[in-house]
Design a protein around this nucleic acid. Structure first.
Lengths: 187, 187
DNA sequence: AACGCGGTTTGACGCGCGTCAAAGAAGCAT
DNA sequence: ATGCTTCTTTGACGCGCGTCAAACCGCGTT
């Protein structure tokens, strides 16, 4: 599913995770959000019958249900409650973006990365001995509007402090509480 | 209409302009967007029956129509097309925020301010001899996630270059084309 | 085991832009 | 006019963080 393409179907992700991202004319990429099972990537565009505003790529193997777009529209017309569900969904994304916007505008990098990790951990696999976040430094950087270098430095620092355990393409959060306060105390 | 409040009515702005903004726990304010006639401030929150995620204040004298929230919900249930209109509206805001997010993450201050001015001009009063944007430097700063000092410097520079005409609480765009390229050439 | 590739780490350096500080203008009230 | 307030301009300075550069490390391949 690509930016600019026109949607002809609805998707409901049942397994796996995807990354929604965008590139600018300048070539810099930014990740809009990560979506997991139960979400409907591209549903806004499909409802509006407009081109996608972003690109979606899979992070893992995925499985999804799909309907033809026009069938879905018929369904909605027949069952008004459905429309209200969609509204809820979009409004939630809206709220999320609002928050991201605010963070990017006002918070220093350390806090942004810390929050991103915590947010990802929230709906990630709560593995044994700390929650695992399976993303590369580069991915984290695009998600927080910074560079992989800065992320790397931060993660290293936090590892030395015993707050996280770093690995190749993954970060395990050991001490969520301290991670939360990391940003503020960084002054 | 304030952040955290619960909505009990729908508004349709018919005259004037309002500013939608948010404050963080740290006290820093950021403007989410400006809305003009024909828009419905707070409609998302009213639909969701959730607290407002932001505060709305008037920039000018305003006039608006209002309905009780529950009546509106009945209306939507009775006329499914209405729901789809709302979807369109929210999706548009979504798209706008997506763009803002991208800009804030990747563009230097000069470009952000330039674009903000152009966007404001697009739906502003196309006055005589250039389009007028009636906002203080501070307002522009909050809208572009920067400081009034930076905005002031930029506007001064552009004025010296003959691109805009500055005034107290207003900026008049004289040469939109050059303003567009300002950001890029700043390297 | 040797190789290579993508990912990560770390340092050095510099610049954009925010912060601090202070002096103008423009508008309003008395 | 004379203040007073709010908005704006301009300078000096410094720091956060991006950029450039180079080494290092897992991990799959042959």
């Amino acid at each position: 599913m690509y930016e600019e393409d026109r949607p002809d179907q609805f998707l409901l992700l049942t397994e796996g995770r995807v990354r929604v991202w965008r590139t600018s004319t300048g070539g810099t990429a930014m990740t809009v959000h990560m979506l997991g099972p139960g979400t409907m990537p591209g549903c806004v565009a499909a409802l509006r019958q407009m081109p996608y505003p972003a690109t979606v790529t899979a992070l893992t193997d995925i499985r999804a249900l799909s309907w033809p777009a026009d069938k879905m529209r018929q369904l909605i017309a027949a069952h008004p409650e459905l429309a209200s569900n969609f509204l809820q969904m979009i409004a939630e994304r809206n709220e999320e973006m609002l928050q991201r916007l605010h963070e990017v505008s006002t918070l220093p990098v350390a806090q942004r990365v810390a929050r991103a990790l915590l947010r990802l951990a929230a709906d990630g696999a709560p593995g044994e001995g700390g929650v695992q976040v399976a993303l590369s430094r580069q991915d984290l950087a695009e998600l927080t509007a910074t560079t992989l270098h800065s992320v790397s430095r931060l993660v290293s620092r936090w590892e030395r402090a015993g707050i996280v355990a770093a690995g190749r393409k993954r970060v395990r959060i050991l001490d969520a509480e301290r991670l939360e306060t990391e940003g503020e105390t960084a002054e």
